[in-house]
Amino acid sequence: MPTTLAAHRFWTIEDPEERAAQRIQFLKNASTLGGLLIAAADTHGKPSLAYRTRHTVGHASDAVTHQAHAAADRVGDAAGSAVDCVTDAVEAALKQLR
């Protein structure tokens, strides 16, 4: 885009035909850039990478919490407070990601 701005300065040209030609080239380059941006952002109906990352982190934290509680059930109440600490740490990490 900087090259387009420098090379096709149609607003500084006095000759109407040359101005029109430069304006066409400028708009062609600008529209090509716009098309590239749309193509880069298009996810074909799938959620964005950021959304998928947050979603995966949420599932991972749920799995960790579930496994921690399952382990506490097997070990007994002595591990209950440790599970609560792990659960609190996972929730704090999730809050920082959001």
Results as ranks from 00 to 15, higher is better:
M1V: 13
M1W: 08
M1G: 10
M1C: 11
T3C: 03
T3Q: 11
T3W: 06
T3M: 09
T3F: 06
T4A: 07
T4Y: 02
A6V: 09
A6R: 07
A6G: 02
A7K: 08
A7S: 07
H8Q: 05
H8F: 14
R9E: 10
R9I: 00
R9D: 11
R9V: 02
R9P: 01
F10Y: 06
W11V: 01
T12W: 12
I13S: 03
I13G: 00
I13T: 13
E14V: 11
E14N: 09
D15V: 04
D15K: 10
D15R: 08
P16M: 08
E18G: 00
E18D: 09
R19A: 05
R19M: 09
A20N: 13
A21L: 05
A21R: 06
Q22K: 10
R23D: 02
R23M: 03
I24P: 04
I24G: 02
Q25G: 05
Q25Y: 06
F26Q: 05
F26I: 00
F26R: 05
F26M: 04
L27H: 06
K28D: 15
N29K: 11
N29G: 12
A30V: 04
A30C: 07
A30G: 01
S31N: 14
S31K: 14
T32R: 09
T32D: 13
L36Y: 09
L36P: 00
L37M: 08
L37N: 03
L37Q: 07
I38W: 08
I38G: 01
A39G: 06
A40F: 06
A40Q: 13
A41C: 07
T43E: 12
T43I: 01
T43A: 11
H44W: 06
G45D: 01
G45C: 07
P47W: 03
L49W: 05
L49G: 08
A50V: 13
A50D: 14
T53K: 14
H55I: 00
T56L: 12
T56F: 06
T56N: 07
V57H: 06
G58Q: 14
H59V: 04
H59I: 10
S61R: 10
T65P: 01
H66M: 12
H66V: 04
Q67Y: 06
A68W: 00
H69P: 00
A70W: 02
A72V: 03
A72K: 03
D73T: 12
R74E: 15
R74F: 09
R74S: 14
R74P: 00
D77Q: 04
D77R: 13
A79L: 07
G80V: 02
G80R: 03
G80L: 01
S81I: 06
S81Q: 11
S81K: 12
A82E: 05
A82N: 07
A82G: 04
A82P: 00
V83C: 01
V83E: 03
V83L: 01
V83M: 05
D84Q: 10
D84G: 07
D84A: 05
D84T: 11
C85Q: 03
C85D: 14
V86H: 03
T87H: 04
D88I: 02
A89D: 11
A89Y: 05
A89S: 13
V90K: 04
A92D: 15
A92Q: 14
A92M: 13
A92E: 15
A93I: 12
L94H: 09
L94S: 13
K95Q: 13
K95I: 02
Q96G: 00
Q96H: 10
L97T: 08
L97G: 05
L97V: 10
L97K: 03
R98Y: 04
R98M: 07
